[in-house]
Computed example of a mutant assay.
Amino acid sequence: MNDPLPMMLSFGAGLLLGAVFFGGLWWTIRKGLNSPRPALLFLGSAVLRMGVVVSGFYFVANGQWQRLLACMAGFIIARLAVTWLIRGKQKEEHHAPES
């Protein structure tokens, strides 16, 4: 475990998995509010997002807890980044134009 490359790649994979998971959640919420079948959309999205993330964690970890930990750290950082980006976008949408 002296090689930093697998840890950096695991962290990057965690960032990608987090972006897919939380970006997909944001998309699902936005689309689900106007959907004729929101329960089906939310359930399908949850199953798909969790399947992708759990599979990703499994393959990235490759039986090594250090890689799993690096991937989880990237996942959490991606959550913070997506939350920050969405809040900024919502502020822009609700901001009244100045006269």
Rank of each mutant, 00 (worst) to 15 (best):
P6F: 00
G51N: 08
S55P: 08
S45F: 12
G56F: 01
M1F: 13
V47D: 03
M1W: 11
G24M: 04
W27L: 13
M8S: 10
D3I: 10
R30T: 02
L41P: 05
M50T: 08
P6Q: 06
M8Y: 10
G44S: 05
L80P: 00
R49E: 10
L5I: 14
Q90L: 14
A19D: 06
A46C: 09
Q64K: 12
Y58I: 03
W84Y: 11
G18I: 02
R30S: 11
G18M: 05
E92H: 05
I86S: 07
V47I: 15
G14H: 06
F57N: 07
I77L: 15
G14D: 06
S99T: 03
M1K: 13
P36V: 03
G44H: 06
R49Y: 10
R49Q: 13
A70S: 02
M50N: 13
L85G: 01
L80G: 15
K31W: 00
R67L: 14
L69C: 09
L48R: 02
K89E: 15
R37M: 11
S45D: 14
R30H: 10
V52H: 02
W65D: 13
F21I: 01
L25S: 03
A78H: 01
M1N: 11
E92Q: 14
P38L: 06
F22L: 13
Q90N: 09
I76K: 08
W26A: 14
R67F: 07
L43H: 09
G44L: 10
G24R: 07
W27R: 14
M50K: 03
S10D: 06
M50Y: 10
A96N: 02
G18T: 06
V20D: 05
F22G: 02
A73W: 01
Q90W: 06
M1P: 04
A19W: 11
V20H: 07
V60W: 03
P4S: 07
R30D: 12
F11V: 00
Q64N: 09
L69W: 09
G24W: 07
N34K: 15
H95E: 11
V60Y: 04
W84P: 02
L69I: 07
A61H: 04
W84V: 03
A13Q: 11
Q90K: 05
L68N: 04
T83H: 12
W27E: 11
I77K: 01
G32K: 04
G88L: 00
A39I: 14
V82C: 01
E98D: 03
W65R: 10
I29N: 06
R30G: 08
A46Y: 15
L9M: 15
L33N: 06
W84K: 09
R79Y: 14
P36Q: 05
M7V: 13
F57C: 02
S10Y: 00
V54W: 09
F11H: 00
W26M: 09
I29T: 11
G63F: 08
G12S: 11
L16S: 10
A39D: 13
G32L: 07
H94R: 15
Y58F: 15
P36H: 07
G56E: 03
A46F: 15
R49H: 09
V54I: 15
S99H: 03
L17K: 01
E98F: 00
I77C: 12
T83G: 10
M1S: 14
K31V: 09
P97A: 00
R37F: 11
I77W: 05
L40M: 13
A46I: 12
G24T: 01
M7R: 06
Y58L: 10
A46T: 15
A81E: 05
Q66Y: 04
L85M: 12
L33S: 06
I76T: 12
